[in-house]
Deep mutational scan, measured.
Amino acid sequence: MGFKLLSKLLVYLTASIMAIASPLAFSVDSSGEYPTVSEIPVGEVRLYQIADGVWSHIATQSFDGAVYPSNGLIVRDGDELLLIDTAWGAKNTAALLAEIEKQIGLPVTRAVSTHFHDDRVGGVDVLRAAGVATYASPSTRRLAEVEGNEIPTHSLEGLSSSGDAVRFGPVELFYPGAAHSTDNLIVYVPSASVLYGGCAIYELSRTSAGNVADADLAEWPTSIERIQQHYPEAQFVIPGHGLPGGLDLLKHTTNVVKAHTNRSVVE
């Protein structure tokens, strides 16, 4: 069995187990497998329904001669939608809004960016022009300005110390501490036991640490421990890039980060 097929099978099995364990909360999309990078042309966006009122959005972007996937989250909030992270750029984010209108038909009224990198804030200006209120932590807003990236308009308070959590509509926002970046936030959907790890969490097929220019490698494993301790009931975990899975993604990420750190020390 090929690795790609095995990865998709694991996603399907995880979703099936969740649907059985929580039949009222989960209505997993039966329309197909989780979209992969090879299936999404740059400039297009796919939506994948995880649970009743919960979707991931998947886009792709060219970077350094390669094409990478990027995940975000959409959560229903009454007759409105909360968006977590842009679709990595203005063109993708405009396509995301169009796809949401086509498939869901509810307005996106608020959006949260989970850290300051372009795959999370690139497209904020498109959201703002569409009347979406954009939010991020003060740290993310400051770092985005320093980096020359787009800056969300509103500040999220109460997320300055490791372990801080605040309720934001249908989700809980959690600051686990520094990891992929010093400002990275985690998003949890309690009604569906869905954990969105953003770039602080890796997919299972990833074996290298990737972009760690703004990471705190020493603190990252401790931050992941905080996530595990705060959300032990999480059933569906979405990484910032690639295929979702279960809580095993947290341990896998820790292993990859520690291996990278150990290699760096040896070198």
Rank of each mutant, 00 (worst) to 15 (best):
A200M: 12
A87Y: 00
I186Y: 01
G245V: 02
I100W: 00
E33Q: 11
A25V: 11
P69K: 07
T86E: 00
P244I: 09
D85T: 00
H252F: 01
V187K: 01
S162E: 14
L243P: 10
S56Y: 15
L143K: 08
V132L: 03
E172K: 04
V171R: 02
V266L: 14
E233W: 09
A19R: 15
D29L: 10
L249T: 01
G72S: 03
L82Y: 06
H117T: 00
K102G: 10
A90P: 13
W55P: 03
V256R: 03
N184C: 03
H230E: 11
I224R: 03
R206I: 15
N149W: 06
H154E: 12
N92Y: 05
S137W: 04
V257L: 11
I100V: 10
S161G: 13
Q61V: 08
D118F: 05
N149I: 07
V45W: 03
R167K: 12
G242F: 03
W55A: 02
D183K: 00
D125Y: 09
V112N: 00
R206F: 11
T36N: 14
N255P: 06
A95W: 03
I40M: 15
A94I: 14
H260V: 11
E33I: 10
H57V: 02
E172I: 06
T86W: 00
S193F: 14
T36V: 11
I58M: 08
G169F: 06
D52V: 11
G78W: 06
T153L: 11
Y175D: 02
P232S: 11
Y68N: 08
K258Q: 13
I50Q: 04
A259I: 09
P239G: 02
L217E: 06
V67G: 13
V124H: 06
G163Q: 06
A129W: 08
V212E: 06
P152W: 01
N71W: 00
E80G: 09
R128H: 13
L24T: 14
G43I: 01
N92A: 07
S139N: 11
A130V: 10
A178M: 07
E101W: 08
R263T: 14
L173Y: 02
V42A: 14
W220G: 02
L83G: 01
L143F: 10
G89E: 00
D77H: 07
T60W: 07
T253D: 01
Q229D: 11
G246W: 03
D216P: 04
A259C: 05
V112C: 04
N262M: 11
A19L: 15
I84W: 00
D52N: 13
T140Q: 05
D125N: 13
V171F: 00
G72R: 03
A25I: 10
L159A: 01
A130W: 09
S264A: 12
S155C: 06
F236S: 10
S137E: 01
S191H: 15
V11C: 15
S264C: 04
A209R: 10
L204D: 09
S7T: 08
A165H: 11
